[in-house]
C-alpha cells in the first residue's frame, strides 16, 4: 500500500507556565497505514496528547504545532473548525478511558448511538435508525440489544458501557479509531473481551487503529507496531513481536519493572528517572 492513512510530522504541544512554555510533546513524527499501532508510555509521556492532537483537540491554554498532519490525503491543519467537525467522529473516532464520564447520563443508550449517526449526516427513517442501532449493539456483542437500547447509562455495567461507547464510535464507520486506555477502567476478563471486539471490528472494516496504553504486554498482544514514548519523545519504535528485543534503556526498564506471573525476583528493578526525563 502506497498511501498512508495518517502522516504526522514534528508534532509539538506546549503549555504556558510561569517560566515560559513547557513542551509536553517534542517533535513526534509517525505514519500509519491500515494497521494497528500501539503508543506506550507512562503518565506525562505525552501519549494521550499525541492522540488528541491528531484530532486537533488539544485544549487551550495548550498549543500545538505540526509540520504536517495529513489524513487520507487531506491536510487537517488547513481545515477550519467546521471542517474538523466533519472529520471527528465520522472519519477519525476516539474511545476514551472511562465510560462513566463519557456517556450522557440523561439519554438512553439507543438515543445516544442514534445521535452519533445523525450528527454525521445520516438521514434515516425512525425505523431504519432503530435497526441500525440494534444491529450495531449486536456487533459489539450485547445480548438482548432491543432492551439495552432503552437503558440509561447508570443501568449498565462498566464493560457494557465501554462496548456501548465503541458502538457509538464505530457506527459512523470511521477509517481510524484512536483508543486511549480503552480498558483500564475494566476488569481483566472484560478487558480481553473489549479488546478482542475492537480487534475484530478493525479487521472486518479494514480500519486503522491507534491504541494508547501504559500496559506494554497488552499493546504487544493487540498491535502490529509499537512506539514507546518518554517525556514527549519517541524513544523506540519496533514491530510488536520484537518488543522483547527492545534496546532502549527506558523500554527495557519498563519491561523489567513489571512483575511476572512466575515471579522469583526478590526486588524489582527500578528506573533511574533522572537519566531520561531531565527533571
Amino acid at each position: 500500500m502506497t498511501e498512508h492513512l495518517l502522516e504526522l510530522e514534528n508534532l509539538r504541544v506546549s503549555f504556558p507556565t510561569r517560566d515560559g512554555p513547557a513542551e509536553v510533546v517534542s517533535g513526534v513524527s509517525l505514519t500509519l497505514g491500515r494497521e494497528r499501532l500501539g503508543i506506550v508510555g507512562e503518565s506525562g509521556s505525552g501519549k494521550s496528547l499525541t492522540g488528541r492532537a491528531i484530532l486537533r483537540l488539544v485544549r487551550p491554554p495548550g498549543k500545538m504545532s505540526v509540520e504536517r498532519l495529513v489524513f487520507a490525503g487531506q491536510d487537517l491543519m488547513a481545515l477550519g473548525e467546521r471542517g474538523m467537525r466533519a472529520i471527528r467522529g465520522a472519519r477519525i473516532s476516539m474511545v476514551m478511558q472511562d465510560p462513566k464520564f463519557s456517556l450522557n447520563p440523561v439519554m438512553t443508550v439507543g438515543e445516544q448511538i442514534a445521535e452519533a449517526l445523525r450528527v454525521h449526516g445520516a438521514r434515516l427513517s425512525r425505523q431504519a435508525m432503530r435497526r441500525r442501532v440494534v444491529s450495531m449493539l449486536e456487533q459489539v456483542r450485547i445480548n438482548d440489544p432491543e432492551r439495552v437500547a432503552g437503558f440509561y447509562p447508570h443501568e449498565v455495567s462498566g464493560g457494557m458501557g465501554q462496548r456501548i461507547m465503541i458502538a457509538m464510535m464505530l457506527i459512523p464507520e470511521p477509517d481510524l479509531l484512536i483508543a486511549d486506555e480503552p480498558t483500564s477502567a475494566l476488569d481483566v476478563s472484560v478487558q480481553a473481551q473489549v479488546l478482542d471486539l475492537i480487534d475484530d471490528l478493525i479487521a472486518r472494516n479494514g480500519m486503522g487503529l491507534i491504541l494508547i496504553s501504559h500496559d506494554l504486554e497488552l499493546v504487544a498482544r493487540y498491535c502490529d507496531r509499537i512506539i514507546v514514548m518518554n517525556a514527549g519523545r519517541i524513544v523506540e519504535e519496533c514491530p510488536a513481536d520484537r518488543l522483547g528485543e527492545a534496546t532502549h534503556p527506558y523500554t527495557r526498564g519498563l519491561i523489567d519493572a513489571v512483575p511476572r506471573m512466575n515471579e522469583t525476583r526478590e526486588e524489582l528493578p527500578v528506573l533511574d528517572r533522572s537519566a531520561w526525563s531531565g527533571t
Binding site: 504486554e217 528485543e245 527492545a246 519491561i255 523489567d256 513489571v258 506471573m261 512466575n262
Partner: peptide
C-alpha cells in the same frame, strides 16, 4: 497466564 511474552523474549 504464564505467557509473559515480552519478558521471556528479553
Amino acid at each position: 497466564g504464564a505467557g509473559a511474552p515480552i519478558a521471556a523474549a528479553g
